[in-house]
Amino acid sequence: LEEIFADPENKTRKRVLGGEDPSPPELLEKIEQLEVELLQKEERLLEMDFIYEQVSRLTDRIQTTAEDGKQDTLLLAKRTNELQKKIKDKTQKMMALVAELSMKQALAIKLQQEVRDREHFLMTVSSRIDQGLPLPQETEREWLKVLRNEKMQKEAAEARAKRAAEEEQAALPGSVHTTAEQRPTAYIPNDESSLPLPRPYGALAPFKPSEPGSNMRHIRKPIVKPIEI
């Protein structure tokens, strides 16, 4: 094919196209028509650009509003969680107060019943005293129990006071702290010629025997034989 088309003497290498060439006025008219169409396309393109710009602006505004709404939604969710937590705490406190109120009401009812019982008991005792009758045995036992408790409390208070005094005495300079039982260091002579004044034992103080231990139960008591004369 290349050789056929490159040969200038070959008359079949070219093919005449059909049709007619437009005249210059027709070409000018065609050019003007194309320019008009180009202007219309440019106007359409400008309109599309303007619409695109407006749509982009609206889209940005909507996106900003959506972001702000998302932040507001997050804050609202946090606030809702805080309020729910406060409501839960208040509910628990209210339930605790209701339970405590129920306990107080039960205690008040019990105390009222106890007051009524004491009033009835007081009226009964007063009537027996007015009639010259002795008190009931239960009342006497309760009274003895109260006296015994008061005595025990008094002894305990005295023991505490004594212990505190001993601790204060032991805290003084030169004193020796000891838990041993205090022994007498003086005696009163039985001599009638001398005054009954205490005299110190000196270096030869009497010996105090120790308390018998638990092993004494294994030792038999000696059998005292009668003396035969």
Results as ranks from 00 to 15, higher is better:
E32F: 03
E26H: 04
L135N: 15
S56C: 10
K78V: 00
T12V: 12
R183Q: 03
E43R: 08
I227P: 00
M48Y: 15
P22E: 02
A205E: 01
T91P: 00
M216F: 10
R44S: 15
A99K: 06
R183S: 02
T139P: 00
I219T: 14
V146A: 14
P196V: 10
H120W: 06
R163T: 08
R13F: 05
N81V: 11
G213W: 02
L39W: 09
P212A: 09
A108V: 01
L74P: 00
L111N: 13
A108R: 02
R118L: 15
V98T: 08
R141Y: 12
H120E: 08
S127E: 12
P222A: 14
Y201Q: 01
D89E: 12
S127V: 06
A156I: 09
E32A: 06
P209H: 05
L76P: 00
P173F: 10
D68A: 05
Q182V: 10
D89S: 12
P198W: 00
I219L: 11
L27H: 06
A99P: 00
P200T: 04
L34I: 06
E67A: 09
D49K: 13
G69E: 08
E9S: 14
S193M: 10
T179R: 04
L204H: 10
Q137G: 12
G69M: 05
E158P: 01
V146M: 13
F5T: 09
P189Y: 01
P25E: 02
A157W: 05
L172Y: 04
Q137D: 14
Q153R: 13
R13Y: 03
L45K: 12
E2F: 01
A6H: 13
G174I: 05
A205G: 01
E167G: 07
L197S: 08
F121M: 09
Q153K: 13
R220H: 07
E26K: 03
D21L: 10
M94S: 09
E167V: 06
E228T: 08
K221E: 04
Q71V: 07
F5I: 13
G69Y: 07
S214T: 07
S214P: 07
K41W: 08
R61G: 09
E158L: 11
A203K: 07
M95Q: 07
A205M: 02
T139D: 04
D49R: 11
G202L: 07
E29S: 14
V98S: 07
Q137W: 10
E26N: 04
A203P: 03
D191E: 14
D89I: 15
T65G: 12
E150P: 07
R13P: 00
S214R: 04
R163V: 02
I227A: 07
E26P: 00
V55G: 02
I4H: 14
Y201N: 01
D117M: 13
P8N: 06
K110C: 07
D191Q: 11
A170W: 11
A205H: 00
V16P: 06
L97K: 15
E9H: 11
M123S: 09
T73C: 08
S193K: 12
E9Q: 12
H218G: 08
K85T: 05
E82K: 04
L83P: 00
P25D: 02
D72C: 01
K110S: 10
T73Q: 09
S214N: 04
S56M: 11
M94A: 10
T178G: 06
T64F: 10
A159C: 03
D130A: 15
T12H: 11
R61V: 05
